[in-house]
């Protein structure tokens, strides 16, 4: 079964290993070999694997690859690059919002979803939006500041 979808703005095709293969494994293997979405729990509990599907944050570790047919997937790589970062990526870097950084993919992608729904979220709205994303290093307050900073930057 060949899946056809859009990946970071480009048409993509892939053959899942099995009907129940989660999207995360498809994105991380050849030919895509993406590093942005990360395996954390496989249970949709931590958020490290988050991608945007048609603009909304989805936990790719628990999202069946089959369901992506015809949809548009954006990963951390599609959001921005080191040379041309998305305002969220720039803000996270400016705030030092990340120690080991492993969770940051989920934090940024979930925040991208938030900012697309709510252009100027309050501090408590940011915290609620990220309440189901786990961080072990304790960079939480800096991430909240980074999201607020990015929101301000995007609002111009």
């Amino acid at each position: 079964m060949t899946l056809r979808f859009t990946l970071n703005g480009r048409p993509a095709e892939a053959e899942p290993a099995a009907p129940d293969q989660p999207l995360l494994y498809l994105l991380r293997e050849e030919p895509f070999a993406l590093n942005g979405p990360r395996f954390g729990c496989g249970l949709a509990q931590c958020g490290a694997c988050t991608v945007l599907i048609d603009g909304r944050a989805v936990r790719s570790c628990s999202y069946p690859a089959e369901a992506v047919e015809g949809q548009s997937v954006t990963t951390l790589e599609g959001l921005g690059t080191k040379e041309s970062p998305h305002p969220l990526q720039a803000a996270f870097n400016a705030e030092g919002a990340g120690q080991c950084g492993y969770c940051s993919n989920g934090m940024i992608m979930q925040s991208a979803d938030l900012l697309s729904q709510n252009r100027r979220p309050s501090e408590s709205e940011i915290k609620e939006a990220l309440a189901r994303n786990l961080c072990r290093c304790g960079g939480h307050n800096r991430m909240v500041a980074a999201v607020a900073r990015a929101a301000a930057a995007m609002a111009g």
Binding site: N35, G36, L76, K82, Q89, F92, N93, G98, C100, N105
Partner: peptide, 8 residues
């Protein structure tokens, strides 16, 4: 940090 926030 910037790599971890972008290319992974």
């Amino acid at each position: 940090l910037v790599d971890k926030l972008t290319a992974g």
